[in-house]
């Protein structure tokens, strides 16, 4: 039996869904599951999702993300735990941290995994290339530690089992002298999930005609608990910020439901969202390429259909 170390991320004192997915998946592989928790939070929660060991450090330095400090601590945690597989979410922190950790401990790392298979020590990961224009399967060689960063929403999550507990050990590590200083953190104004973690996305393109019309999408998104995305064209036009861009030069997303409004379906946009489970296209042009990727299509005027849809969802979801 080998050991899987899961880098466990928290939000508002709770384990993020993306980390719950990884802990619960790791528990199904028959290996020992250890959770790494950096920051002052209730790390013991990891046991409720399948970890039997929790390695934590409540050092104040972990309250914000400092790549140098996190690299040293994570590398030591991997080595001390004896883990041969490390799982983390392909989040902003995961994607920044683990390549540096991999270089430090001379390990292999694969990011953006969408399917994973672990048999004993053997790890296979399917991941998109060109933001999803094609896929390939990664295998590891010449490495004692295999690091996989999985995209959120790819693995099932069951309810927490609060009866379970774990051995909790405090992580000690040699603090480096830091050349990185976090001066300020300005929280995003949105309470919504990041696009990469959202389960439902409502996305707008040039068909919306002007920036102010995104309000219509926000209204629909509020009813659905969705996050709003956008195409490159409208980001480049300055209607919305780049953090909302979906596509090959923006974010690659794979929600359960993607509603594209006034989006024609440029090849680089399709690359970023065609992994979505269900795609709805609303467009006045019946020949728009987006319809070739869509599950459901509505040919018509977005300015009539979106408010009608918002009203209909309100009605149905109220019950």
């Amino acid at each position: 039996m080998s050991k899987i170390l899961v880098f466990t991320e928290f939000q508002n004192g709770k384990i993020k869904r993306s980390s719950q997915e990884l802990l619960q998946f790791a528990a199904t592989t028959g290996n020992t599951v250890a959770a790494l928790v950096l920051g002052s939070t209730d790390g013991a929660q990891a046991a409720h999702h399948g970890a039997t060991e929790v390695l934590f450090s409540a050092d104040a330095g972990f309250n914000s993300y400092n790549p140098e400090l996190f690299t040293v601590a994570t590398a030591e945690a991997i080595q001390k735990s004896g883990a041969t597989v490390v799982l983390a979410s392909s989040s902003s922190t995961g994607k920044d941290l683990f390549p540096r950790v991999a270089a430090k401990i001379k390990a292999g790392v694969v990011s953006d995994g969408i399917e994973i298979k672990i048999t004993g020590d053997d790890v296979k990961v399917k991941k998109p290339f060109y933001s999803g224009k094609c896929f390939a399967t990664a295998t590891f060689e010449n490495t004692n530690v295999k690091i996989v960063l999985m995209r959120p929403n790819q693995l099932p999550v069951a309810a927490a089992d609060v009866s379970k507990s774990a051995t909790v050990t405090e992580l000690t590590f040699t603090k480096p002298s830091l050349k990185t200083i976090i001066k300020d953190i300005v929280k995003g104004t949105s309470e919504k999930l990041d696009l990469t973690e959202a389960n439902i996305i409502v996305s707008g393109g040039r068909g919306l005609k002007e920036a102010g019309n995104f309000k219509m999408l926000n209204d629909l998104a509020d009813v659905l608990g969705a996050t709003v995305g956008a195409t490159r064209a409208v980001v480049d036009a300055g209607w919305v910020g780049h953090s909302m861009q979906v596509g090959q030069t923006g974010k690659t997303v794979a929600p359960s439901l993607y509603i594209a409004v006034g989006v024609s379906g440029a090849i680089q946009h399709l690359a970023g969202m065609s992994g979505s489970k269900v795609i709805v296209a609303i467009n006045s042009d019946p020949n728009a390429p987006i319809f070739q990727k869509a599950t459901y299509g509505i040919v018509g005027d977005a300015f009539e259909i979106v408010p009608a849809l918002t009203a209909e969802f309100k009605k149905v979801l109220a019950h």
Partner: peptide
């Protein structure tokens, strides 16, 4: 630019 529109100022 971190997740969810958060900005981190780093020296």
């Amino acid at each position: 630019d971190a997740d969810g529109g958060t900005k981190e100022v780093v020296q």
